[in-house]
Simulated assay, not measured.
Amino acid sequence: MSTDIQTIRKLAHLARLEFNDEKEQDMLQDLNKILNWVDQLRELDTENVEPLVHMSEEVNVLRDDMAQNTVSHEQALANAPKKDSDYFRVPKVLE
Rank of each mutant, 00 (worst) to 15 (best):
I5K: 15
L11R: 10
E22C: 03
L41R: 06
E47S: 13
L77A: 05
A80Q: 13
Q40L: 09
D45I: 00
L62W: 04
L77Q: 07
L62P: 00
H13E: 12
A67K: 08
H54R: 10
N60C: 07
N48M: 12
A67N: 10
V53R: 10
I34D: 06
D21I: 01
H54D: 14
D39C: 09
E24T: 09
E22K: 12
S56R: 04
R63A: 07
H73A: 12
Q6Y: 02
L44Q: 14
S85I: 13
M27Y: 10
Q29C: 00
S72G: 09
N36W: 02
Q75V: 07
L11C: 12
S72N: 09
E18P: 04
R63G: 04
L35T: 08
L44S: 03
I5V: 15
S56G: 09
K23G: 01
A15H: 07
K92E: 05
I34M: 08
K82F: 02
K82T: 00
E22F: 06
A15Y: 04
E18R: 13
R42T: 13
M1A: 15
L17P: 04
S56H: 09
L62Q: 11
T3C: 09
K82A: 03
V71I: 14
K10T: 07
E47I: 01
E18G: 14
Q68L: 06
K92T: 05
Q75N: 11
T3S: 12
I5R: 15
L28R: 11
D26G: 03
D4P: 06
N69L: 04
R63Y: 04
M66C: 03
E22I: 08
L14S: 05
V38P: 01
E47P: 00
S56L: 06
E57P: 01
E58W: 03
E74A: 15
K10D: 08
